[in-house]
């Protein structure tokens, strides 16, 4: 299955977790751990680290299930947000080290193929966000995707695309505004 089952009751799982039902956490794990690991792996880049992130995410989901508030968003969205932000915190907290590696790596890549405009292998799907992303220029769309999916900082995106940092920041800012307008 590549798409989440529409019938799966994430919220009921969280309610049961909040009541201390470990089986519910297991059900949630079976349902989403592979997708969550995929999300974490893209951001932290390393298998073992990504598993650490998913481990911490499930501990947090278990411990904080009682604080999940359905008026703030879907239960599935919540568990993805928990995982993504753990991964983002990790790479940002270790930014100096990771960024140096990345810049070394990228500057070599740039010499080989400078200014790749369509660097993000992008798979359009049916959701609203994809309709709106389609309306952005490819380079700007890539900025958004590299940031959200790869966890790249402004500086990393600038390196990756061979575009000045200020331009990348402005593109992202305007693209987010455009998405906001398009999606409501």
């Amino acid at each position: 299955m590549s798409l989440p089952e529409p019938t799966f009751d994430y919220e009921a799982c969280l309610t049961r977790c909040a009541q201390g039902d470990q089986q519910a956490l297991r059900v949630l794990y079976d349902q989403e751990s592979a997708r969550l690991l995929g999300v974490a792996k893209r951001i932290v880049g390393d298998n073992a680290l990504a598993e650490d992130i998913v481990h911490d995410a499930f501990i947090k989901i278990w411990a904080r299930a009682n604080s999940y508030d359905s008026s703030r968003g879907s239960a599935r969205g919540w568990i993805f947000s928990v995982t993504r932000h753990l991964a983002l915190n990790f790479i940002r907290d270790n930014a100096n080290h990771a960024l140096a590696d990345e810049l070394d790596h990228e500057s070599m890549a740039d010499q080989a193929s400078p200014g790749i405009a369509d660097s993000f292998e992008y798979r359009a799907r049916s959701g609203r966000i994809y309709t709106c992303l389609e309306q952005l220029e490819p380079a700007r769309r890539n900025c958004i995707l590299h940031a959200y999916v790869d966890g790249y900082s402004h500086a990393q995106i600038a390196q990756k695309l061979g575009t000045p940092l200020g331009t990348v920041k402005a593109w992202i800012k305007r693209s987010l505004l455009a998405l906001r307008e398009c999606m409501g």
Binding site: L37, R84, R123, V149
Partner: peptide, 12 residues
Amino acid sequence: LELTEQADAQTP
């Protein structure tokens, strides 16, 4: 949220 679909699932 839907952009999380861009990352391939990976079996732990």
